[in-house]
Nucleic acid binder design. Structure first.
Length: 439
RNA sequence: GCUCGGGUAGUAUAGUUCGGUCUAGUAUAUGCGGCUGUCGCCCGUAGGACCCGGGUCCGAAUCCCGGCCCGAGCGCCA
């Protein structure tokens, strides 16, 4: 099949920018064939780009024979350019259609696509991920990532506005940053290195220089987790701030989340409509429950957890039914949190760590950090960690480490909340999990 | 890692309980033909599948054993 060249054509409009205001004007559109409906004497080409779809209408008796001939060839996913006239009409949902004067065929696709991109016969997530590049062309999939983009943009602009500096810490590290989560090892010349599970230690160190920082980036956990909310590679939105405590960063966090919800709701109404999903902008402040209150609340509903134990998933699911929106869980037992979270001065059994939950999903975790070296070393030992392997981190505490606090949002989990997806792999372009390493 | 559940055309599924009209049904997709206002177009037509290996049996998609792959939940973790 002969292909055309773009030549001197330039795109004049994104497809969603073509409106009734452009009636009778000539436009040049680039995109793909999403669907062809041929009724005999009339043929409708549904053309798609990342912004939406538009109908190209071909009246076979009236159209230029060359255009007709070209349109005979078109199949789903063929990449095309269309020059044509915008026509106002009451016969399409958008009130416009394109009457083509010239069509260029830029590239072809196979006849039998591995998944249905129009949504008529939805495929399972596994099948979709195997053909992810194609799956990502489905309007509903695009919608998820537009929402993610909008959320991230909202977070960034909010934090920039508040004076946070965006930073980039290493992904390749020499040893465990936190203990706990398993690390992926990598060959690093003649040494063994690891993929970072979090920017935690670096961002803490940066509070003694840049004071208020944030970072968005991928982190890696070599856990055996096999659930709808875990990934081996995920995107973390981290902040850390000097001269602040848990209360300060919780207040910041709920404002960030609120701003994200408002922004997504305002600017992604089409995407939310495509996804058939609605959410309410949460009211501030978010509910704050202490760990002890959570246990009491669970006990009233028949779930008995001894104080000090971690809260199992099943209990969180129960809790999510009682508090179906955003809520904080604060004042965790010190032994249930990592070493760098600060125990409360008046009662060291509990700490200044918190989680922001959405129903049963842990969206964010954070807290006040320990700023004194001796206490930090002491906590490392309690957790069975060797302070020697943290010597480069610990030396920073000799140089005027300020009191500080911070948090980390799981971006894919936040996207689940904002898009109503129930599997985290739907909110990641190319997910990596216990099983999947491709595509 | 543990416990369940599953593997049938490109996709999504029915059939498996209790083996036999299963020559494996349906939808959608694909090919071909028809149709001038569709928008999940419609109508006709064609081709297309029982994860692999072994066993029981006159007979296995269905039962048994082994393998491979996948999902959900738990644990771990965030």
């Amino acid at each position: 099949m002969d292909m055309d060249f773009i030549g001197n054509w330039t795109r004049t409009h994104d497809i969603n920018k073509v409106s009734q205001d452009l009636d009778s004007q000539q436009v040049v559109l680039f995109g793909w064939v999403q669907d062809v409906r041929d009724l005999g004497g009339i043929r409708f080409i549904i053309m798609q780009d990342r912004t939406g779809t538009i109908q190209i209408t071909i009246l076979k008796k009236r159209v230029d024979p060359e255009v007709l001939q070209k349109s005979d060839l078109l199949q789903k996913r063929f990449s095309i350019a269309v020059m044509g006239t915008v026509k106002k009409t009451n016969m399409t949902p958008r009130g416009i259609e394109i009457i083509p004067t010239q069509i260029k065929l830029l590239n072809i696709a196979i006849e039998q696509l591995p998944i249905d991109i129009t949504g008529k016969t939805p495929a399972n997530i596994e099948t979709r991920l195997d053909a992810r590049a194609l799956d990502l062309t489905a309007e509903s999939t695009i919608a998820v990532f537009k929402i993610q983009h909008t959320a991230l943009q909202a977070i960034r602009s909010f934090l920039f506005e508040k004076g946070y500096l965006e930073v980039h810490t290493p992904r390749i590290i020499a040893s465990a940053t936190e203990g706990g989560a398993e690390l992926f090892g990598v060959k690093y010349f003649d040494q063994t290195a690891y993929l970072a599970q979090s920017p935690q230690l670096y961002k803490e160190q940066l509070t003694m220089s840049l004071e208020k920082i944030f970072e968005v980036g991928p982190f890696f956990r070599a856990e055996e987790s096999h659930t709808r909310r875990h990934l081996s590679e995920f995107t973390s939105v981290d902040i850390e701030q000097a001269f602040a405590n848990a209360d300060d960063v919780m207040a910041l966090l709920e404002q960030v989340i609120h701003h994200v919800c408002v922004t997504v709701k305002e600017t992604c109404s089409n995407e939310l409509h495509v996804l058939k999903y609605k959410f309410e902008v949460p009211e501030l402040p978010f509910k704050r429950l202490t760990y002890t209150e959570v246990l009491e609340s669970l006990k009233e509903h028949g779930v008995d957890i001894p104080w000090g134990e971690d809260i199992p998933t099943e209990a969180f699911r129960e809790l999510g039914k009682l508090y179906p929106f955003f809520y904080f869980v604060t004042d965790w037992p010190s032994k249930a949190k990592t070493f760098y979270i600060k125990p409360r001065r008046e009662n060291p059994e509990v700490c200044e760590g918190f989680d922001l939950m959405w129903r049963y999903i842990e969206l964010v975790s954070g807290g006040t950090r320990i700023e004194h070296k001796e206490q930090l070393v002491c906590r490392m030992r309690e957790k069975g960690l060797n302070p020697e392997s943290f010597k480069y981190h610990l030396q920073a505490f000799d140089w005027g480490m300020p009191p500080h606090a911070g948090w980390a949002i799981g971006l894919e989990r936040l996207t689940m909340v904002l898009s109503g997806r129930k599997n985290i792999r739907e909110t990641t372009l190319y997910p990596r999990d216990r099983i999947r390493l491709t595509p």
